[in-house]
């Protein structure tokens, strides 16, 4: 994200202590509608969620009974939560690794003057614009015991498994579906980053006799580190927020085998009516996402992307 926090061009020079009255009024008028919507439905709920997670609120009672950190204590002792955490972590690792690998490979292949580049890009992007519900429905029925995948396997003499009834196969299918859906998006991100790389370094390396692999290993990949960081964080957020795909593909089953944190939260809050507990799950998810992002940020050295 190439975002800068520079204020408008006219405020260059020494800082002015006074604001132009007309400008402030216009700004207030322009900002008001968006800030009201975002304030009421996004910013305030973040604060409110912190409070709700400390209550046993069922979503309807006018009174929210304060129970301190009981919800979090209960989480720590809840085997369903630990199962969900394990499932989410395995899923997240799979999605992150495969997203980087597939996105990078497709981008590297497309980063050349080849025929039909636009067509390839269009095809690879198709799943990204398809709704999660539609995508998951199609995958669900392709993976059905009487479906397309096992039909093909049967033709070559293999008795296909019941994919969505086995815990780990179902999680694998969910991972594949997620990667399939985001492939085009990740490829476009990597492609953008590739095309912004300074060409001079590659020419210099080629003159020095560096081969294709050496250039990729020692120039391209290090220079792409910030984008890799970004793709990983996106994949991480996607998997920790996963809901639509899981809801339709497996509903969290079999026996909780694909019950990611989002599904667990949905079940606790909206099926079982425990909003306090559901919010506590959401907060733990948030803490995990932020924590892992921070570690990844430090480890990848995304802040310093210079060649060493």
């Amino acid at each position: 994200m190439a975002l800068t926090f520079s204020s408008s061009r006219r405020s260059s020079g020494p800082p002015r202590p006074r604001y132009d009255r007309e400008q402030v009024l216009t700004a207030g008028l322009f900002l008001l509608p968006a800030l009201v919507v975002l304030g009421v439905f996004v910013i305030y709920p973040i604060v409110a969620a912190g409070q709700i997670s400390l209550t046993s609120w069922n979503g309807f009672d006018p009174v929210k009974e304060f129970i301190g950190f009981d919800n979090y204590v209960r989480l720590a002792q809840d085997p369903e939560f630990w199962n969900s955490l394990l499932v989410t972590c395995v899923y997240a690792v799979g999605v992150c690794l495969l997203s980087v690998a597939t996105g990078l490979v497709v981008a590297l292949l497309l980063d050349a003057p080849i025929r039909g580049r636009g067509i390839y890009r269009g095809i690879y992007f198709l799943p990204a614009v398809t709704s999660s519900v539609a995508a998951a429905i199609v995958w669900k029925y392709m993976l059905d015991p009487a479906g397309f995948v096992n039909g093909l396997l049967a033709q070559v003499g293999i008795a296909g498994p019941d994919w969505l009834q086995d815990r780990w196969l179902a999680l694998g299918a969910l991972t594949a579906l997620t990667v399939w859906k985001n492939l085009g998006f990740n490829a476009v991100l990597y492609l953008t980053a590739l095309q912004a790389l300074p060409q001079g370094v590659f020419e210099a390396a080629q003159i020095d006799g560096a081969g294709w692999w050496q250039r990729l290993r020692h120039i391209t990949l290090p220079l792409l580190a910030p984008m890799t960081f970004f793709v990983v964080v996106q994949a991480l957020i996607t998997s920790f927020q996963a809901f639509d795909l899981v809801y339709v593909l497996t509903g969290g089953g079999p026996q909780g085998g694909t019950e990611v944190l989002g599904m667990l939260m949905y079940r606790e809050a909206f099926r079982l009516g425990d909003f306090g507990y559901g919010t506590a799950i959401a907060f733990v998810t948030l803490a995990l996402v932020l924590g892992v992002t921070l570690v990844q940020w430090r480890a990848s050295g995304a802040g310093k992307s210079s060649l060493r």
Binding site: S7, V42, I43, A49
Partner: peptide, 28 residues
């Protein structure tokens, strides 16, 4: 436009972008 707390407001909005939907969805 230049107005008070401009950068602060913008940073808050950016930060909100990083918060998973699940955190805000129950209060919303």
């Amino acid at each position: 436009l230049s107005f008070p707390f401009k950068n602060a407001i913008f940073v808050v909005l950016l930060a909100a972008l990083l918060i998973p939907t699940f955190v805000t969805i129950i209060p919303a």
